[in-house]
Design a protein around this nucleic acid. Sequence first.
DNA 1: AAACCTATCGGGAAGGTTCTCGAAACGGGT
DNA 2: ACCCGTTTCGAGAACCTTCCCGATAGGTTT
Lengths: 364, 364
Amino acid sequence: MRGKQRYYCKSCDYHFTIGDENTPQEPKRHHEVTIMDIARQLGISKSTVSRALRGHTDIHEGTRQMILDLAKELDYEPNPLANALLKRRTNIIGMLVPEFRHYFFPTIIMGAQAVLSKAGYNLMIFQSDESYETEVANVKALLRSRVDGLLVSITGKTENFDHFRTVLQKEVPVVFFNRVCPELDTPQVIIDDYSGAFQAVEHLIEQGYRRIAHLAGPSILQIARLRMQGYVDALQKHGLPMDESLIVYHDLTEENARLCARHLLDLPQPPEAIFAVNDPSALEVLLLAKKRGIKVPQDLGIVGFSNDPVSAIIEPSLSTVEQPVWEIGEQSAQLLLEQLEQPRLETKVLKTRLIVRDSSRRRG
Amino acid sequence: MRGKQRYYCKSCDYHFTIGDENTPQEPKRHHEVTIMDIARQLGISKSTVSRALRGHTDIHEGTRQMILDLAKELDYEPNPLANALLKRRTNIIGMLVPEFRHYFFPTIIMGAQAVLSKAGYNLMIFQSDESYETEVANVKALLRSRVDGLLVSITGKTENFDHFRTVLQKEVPVVFFNRVCPELDTPQVIIDDYSGAFQAVEHLIEQGYRRIAHLAGPSILQIARLRMQGYVDALQKHGLPMDESLIVYHDLTEENARLCARHLLDLPQPPEAIFAVNDPSALEVLLLAKKRGIKVPQDLGIVGFSNDPVSAIIEPSLSTVEQPVWEIGEQSAQLLLEQLEQPRLETKVLKTRLIVRDSSRRRG
DNA sequence: AAACCTATCGGGAAGGTTCTCGAAACGGGT
DNA sequence: ACCCGTTTCGAGAACCTTCCCGATAGGTTT
């Protein structure tokens, strides 16, 4: 069996036998080692090889060893394409994020990747760049690629969810994280945005700020609505009036955040403090205030959301609401893996924590 | 032809005909619309359908329309797995970066993705986390996934390149960018590190700094060696002595950068200025200096490399050498696409530009 | 009328794997 | 010597597509 003449094609890493049959079969033009090669050399069937490699039970121990040895010697790698075609499983997870310039989504991706690669899945990442059309196109592309599941954080402009309905119709599981979809029954990973925002605004009130503005996100996003609600309720709890003119919505792009910051500081009666929906936009406020010589925190208090690393090193350092970013990735991936086993609805809510820094501390 | 009774399985989005043959064939358990479905319903062969869909020529115009119409009606999507299996092309490009917490690599990825997705390729991204073992494992995983090509930036610890030799042996094209592999004949996208570093150090000298240290990268990396050489030559040109004790190497991790920064500032006779191999490490120096009350730029000049957005907003703002990050991604992808057509050696060198900011300006 | 040409289409293999079903082989019991 | 249960293995279909090679039909030419 094992003693046959084996040849090795150096240029392309291909092993083959000559005189196996009486036909001196020459090496095929392009050779990837397949289970058929192993079977031929061992004079057995491909079924047997497949079973041995797969660790199936009813295989003679000697035969299995022969196969395993030869497979290692030939450096055999199973072809995932053939497998995927047969099993309708690519072992690829699609991930869709709005952007990854800042630290937030990259970190989530890393968390997800850690979990998924341990489970034998690879990641295909797309970014919608806050464009609804791109998001739809990306979902389509992901579906075309036959990914096994989807990890999604939607854009700030996504109002129509038909593209995700298509996904669910094809029985491809979807887990939303951070920016979730409220009208679809899918598992989600979110944080307690409401209480995070509430704490942040209450903290500002405690520091003596009264006219507190909110640089909000697009109200179609749940995170934006919840943070807004936290803001509103905190004001109300402390008997402060809510001034509509102090609420300004932005679409989560950098330029737009800059515009909104200017709008707020240009107000005839500018706010004493600003609670921003995320750190990048809070940062825009902070930078503009610095440029104009507005004293932070004395004349303007600022609190952001998410604890971007920049917030700690900017001067004055930015108060913010920390959220477990890496863990969001992990949990989302974990949830998706469970969906792949058995679909069931589940929402994970992670905790936030207020980090008070210099941008909002003007007492004790 | 078209008038046959068609049924539609709502739960799984499957169209089928009954009474097509005399056997009332019921819908298969799991149904994805295939070209066979189209062929069956039209009473033609799958070859014809395939050709019509592929835009082949010798097909009757009427037939083609029928096929195209039905394909659209059934929402047919070609199965890329079957195609990939047959053509040995997955249309997936593997990308391997050391990390993507900072702005640098994410931006490169975005640039590459823009080019690749336009060309019909998808991206599979891995990060080695500055670990050689992870890099090797990732390359293997990418190869197992049968990617069509590789876009790689190596770790700071990669001395052995056998894993990339394996890739080339399998005739999978590789393009290195930023952190390239010197001993392999592959296309690369780099920047003029040498002159960038030279300018940076010369600028420090012009500002009157004399004892200039270099927080270097691992010397096995070409970028680190070139930047080091620029540093050395700039000193020499201006007749400054080179003090070995002022050169300290770090492995590009954050913790290690912090250690090295401390080491430099703890020196019995500390440097007057520090040129760092990249912005994140320059930032560590800056932060430590601030913490210790060392005046920047008066008592310590600092210049980084890469122009991370944080550098512009930190206080004092960080002088740095700008490089066209997005373009590195674009060009790498472009080069890889060319490799896929026809392998040929090419190295693209992009320009850098010194940006002088507050951390190094103490004159004029 | 026979031969030929062109336009259009079908059959079947290939790509690499897994899985079902069934078939040998072998040992032991009667 | 026959039957039966196990153990071990092989044949072939299926997954979905593309492509090569022929085949058929109709019309055209001689």
